Amino acid sequence: MKMNTMTFRSLTMLAFSLLIFSCNGKKEQQTEEANEETVVEQDSLLPLNRLNLPEGFKIEIYAKGLDGARSMAMGDDGTLFVGTRREGNVYAVKDTDGDYKADKMWTIASGMTLPNGVAFKDGSLYLADVSRLLKYNNIENELDGPSEPELIYDDYPEALHHGWKYIAFGPDDKLYVPVGAPCNICDSTMVDERYATITRMNADGTDREIVARGVRNTVGFTWHPESKELYFTDNGRDMMGDDVPPCELNRVTEMGQHFGYPFCHGGTIADPEFGDQRPCSDFVPPVQNLGPHVAPLAVKFDTGSMFPESYKGHAFIAEHGSWNRSKKIGYRIMLVKLDANGNATSYEPFIDGWLDEESQEAFGRPVDLLFLQDGSLLISDDVGDAIYRVTYQG
């Protein structure tokens, strides 16, 4: 059957129009998916059956596909904001159907330098890069395309070594921001007194001051639910051997206290390079010495109604895990039990199994902890690229 010229031209134009529509449709779809995309669950890729939990507890995937998931902050409308260190992205995920599994994900910032720290207050997301702090106003209503952030400050030290920050608002409504030492071991305060400290400020960046000194590198802190005292983890120095020094859990009871770095470690161990300058008796000892090189990050207290009463008022710690021991340790969630005076009485595993003891391979490294309103516990993992949810079923 022959096709006349007019029919051929019409069909050709129709096919060309359909091709243009198809390409434009794909472009629009790709643009939309760059801002919002469904979180794909990949439970089978993470062997959660290898994890050891106390009787009655259960761990599941809350969100997957967040490359290098690190610090977490929860928004007022249920949006979980997740900072990263590896890729320079900041994510938002949301459980829109109430099944405690995130089903939507947005990349709200990219191309940043170690945007580890996130905090949420009064509808705004605060995001800490190495030397600057940004504020995203009305963020939960602008997840598809956030407005240009407000610059709070850009004058903190720029050193990348221990430059990533964990930030949080305290019970005094101040924003707490640490500044890690720019080295393994050095007296960095000779360069800038803010190094090896925890600072705090108003939400607009004013009235900045130093809260604690002698803090090598804290990437996690919180406040006791009753005393309101600041508790923080600190990563011990390297290159003193497999078992020395310990990492630390510390408590601030007065403004400006000094916790030993670089002169003293673990409350009693003089540093081989700086220990002859000041005695350990000059400094505040740890509440609890943790394992050597376990890289403790987040610390949180359980104040919810889900976990048994025996866990209330005690400190959960995410140990990221060692990289500098002949045999790795850490890669677990630990529990430090405290007495009525806030002093440690025990240090024991809560969840472990991310590290295979025989092969020395780990499928995950815990980073941050966050308790949800229902009392369940979220754990971020920057190797598994996941957020886990721990529940107690009794």
Score class of each variant (00 low, 15 high):
residue 256 G to W: 06
residue 259 F to W: 03
residue 272 P to T: 02
residue 300 K to W: 01
residue 314 H to V: 07
residue 296 P to E: 05
residue 274 F to R: 11
residue 265 H to R: 11
residue 265 H to E: 15
residue 264 C to N: 07
residue 329 I to M: 04
residue 322 S to R: 07
residue 248 E to V: 08
residue 316 F to E: 11
residue 296 P to L: 06
residue 242 D to W: 06
residue 268 T to H: 11
residue 262 P to E: 02
residue 330 G to W: 03
residue 324 N to V: 13
residue 279 P to S: 04
residue 319 E to R: 03
residue 330 G to I: 02
residue 301 F to Y: 10
residue 326 S to I: 07
residue 332 R to V: 04
residue 315 A to Q: 10
residue 334 M to E: 14
residue 266 G to A: 10
residue 288 Q to M: 15
residue 326 S to E: 14
residue 281 S to Q: 08
residue 243 D to C: 10
residue 336 V to Q: 07
residue 328 K to C: 05
residue 326 S to M: 13
residue 255 M to T: 15
residue 245 P to N: 03
residue 298 A to W: 09
residue 322 S to F: 07
residue 269 I to H: 07
residue 332 R to H: 03
residue 271 D to Y: 01
residue 261 Y to T: 04
residue 293 H to W: 01
residue 283 F to V: 09
residue 331 Y to D: 11
residue 327 K to I: 13
residue 251 R to T: 11
residue 269 I to R: 03
residue 268 T to E: 15
residue 310 S to F: 00
residue 242 D to E: 10
residue 279 P to V: 02
residue 268 T to G: 03
residue 275 G to L: 05
residue 278 R to P: 00
residue 255 M to N: 15
residue 268 T to Q: 03
residue 278 R to C: 04
residue 276 D to A: 14
residue 262 P to K: 04
residue 277 Q to M: 15
residue 243 D to R: 06
residue 270 A to G: 00
residue 248 E to W: 11
residue 248 E to H: 13
residue 256 G to I: 05
residue 295 A to C: 13
residue 337 K to G: 07
residue 332 R to N: 12
residue 244 V to Q: 14
residue 260 G to P: 14
residue 337 K to W: 07
residue 330 G to V: 04
residue 279 P to E: 08
residue 323 W to D: 02
residue 270 A to L: 14
residue 262 P to Q: 06
residue 330 G to R: 02
residue 312 K to Q: 15
residue 258 H to F: 08
residue 251 R to S: 00
residue 295 A to D: 13
residue 335 L to A: 03
residue 297 L to E: 06
residue 318 A to D: 07
residue 315 A to L: 07
residue 282 D to C: 01
residue 332 R to K: 14
residue 332 R to L: 10
residue 282 D to P: 08
residue 299 V to W: 05
residue 306 M to D: 10
residue 272 P to W: 04
residue 293 H to E: 02
residue 254 E to G: 03
residue 281 S to N: 13
residue 277 Q to P: 06
residue 298 A to G: 05
residue 339 D to C: 09
residue 326 S to R: 12
residue 262 P to C: 12
residue 295 A to H: 03
residue 300 K to L: 01
residue 319 E to I: 01
residue 329 I to R: 14
residue 336 V to W: 11
residue 264 C to Q: 10
residue 250 N to S: 09
residue 306 M to Y: 12
residue 257 Q to W: 12
residue 247 C to D: 15
residue 340 A to Y: 01
residue 299 V to A: 14
residue 309 E to F: 12
residue 291 G to Y: 05
residue 251 R to V: 10
residue 317 I to M: 05
residue 312 K to I: 12
residue 243 D to Y: 11
residue 325 R to N: 00
residue 272 P to K: 11
residue 323 W to H: 15
residue 318 A to R: 03
residue 307 F to R: 02
residue 315 A to F: 06
residue 293 H to Q: 05
residue 304 G to V: 05
residue 289 N to S: 14
residue 333 I to C: 06
residue 340 A to R: 11
residue 284 V to P: 06
residue 266 G to K: 10
residue 278 R to H: 14
residue 317 I to T: 09
residue 257 Q to A: 06
residue 272 P to V: 00
residue 315 A to M: 04
residue 273 E to V: 15
residue 298 A to K: 09
residue 341 N to T: 12
residue 254 E to Y: 07
residue 295 A to F: 00
residue 317 I to R: 02
residue 278 R to W: 02
residue 290 L to I: 08
